[in-house]
Design a protein around this nucleic acid. Structure first.
Lengths: 128, 128
DNA sequence: CCTTGCCTTGACGTCGGCGTCAAGCCGTAC
DNA sequence: GTACGGCTTGACGCCGACGTCAAGGCAAGG
């Protein structure tokens, strides 16, 4: 299949596919007209990339998964390099979620101490 | 005080201060040499901006807080517009944290199902 | 006098992941 | 013939919050 069809089938754009190719992530064969051609394997690679992107992985982080699939594994996360990325991501997520929750709590306190009703709570409000 | 001193005192850079001014967030007076001058009030405004930035607010979102301080309020979040931003931010944070936790859980499951030890768990692993 | 240091404005660079436009080739339908 | 649709490469645009470089002014110190 050609680039337009692949884009349509995976909900992306031709621009995105060419960009991935420029990054060496999704190289394409060429037909006699010089047009890019793809097969079902590429569909799978692309779906893997998109799934990880949706998870917040950046492009470089998807590379081990793509290479794992290209190496013949049925799943992109069957390889040590992919699992390493998973572990790094878990740590990043835990750190980030923790920070966001701290910020959330801080804002909630500020809101509660300034908000509508009088101080019928015991949040240690310092007349802020 | 001049721009260099303000930057040093607040842990930012002169470039950042000029940028804030260009955004209309932190206008400066000028001395007879055309140099920017600031006072203690500006230190307070700047600290407010930086605090919110650290919380993940973008510059535009800090504007109501700055204007609130400039309007004479002792705290930047004493004004309705600031509280509205707080509430929007809380909602955004809740949504984001939820998504991140979902991603975290998904990754954790994938890790557990491919990782080291044999399937001594009951996560419904489909031989992935 | 000359250097050093702080200031000024202006403008281009950065990062990620593409969007969008331009110019041109190719095959097919009318 | 020609219009159209899909493909090609190349290159600039975008967003946010600045970093960095360039060229120049002004004052104090040796």
């Amino acid at each position: 299949m050609r680039i337009g069809e692949l884009a349509a089938r995976t909900g992306t754009t031709t621009r995105t596919l060419r960009y991935y190719e420029s990054r060496g992530l999704l190289p394409a064969r060429r037909d006699d007209l010089g047009h890019r051609t793809y097969d079902e394997g590429d569909v799978k690679l692309l779906r893997q990339i998109r799934t990880l992107q949706d998870f917040g992985f950046d492009l470089e982080e998807t590379r081990p998964f793509v290479e794992c699939l290209r190496a013949g594994h049925p799943e992109g996360d069957s390889c040590p390099a992919s699992l390493a990325v998973y572990r790094r991501k878990l740590a990043e997520l835990d750190a980030l979620i923790g920070e966001l929750q701290a910020v959330r709590a801080t804002i909630a306190v500020r809101l509660a101490s300034t908000d509508g009703e009088p101080p019928l709570c015991e949040l240690g409000g310092q007349e802020l």
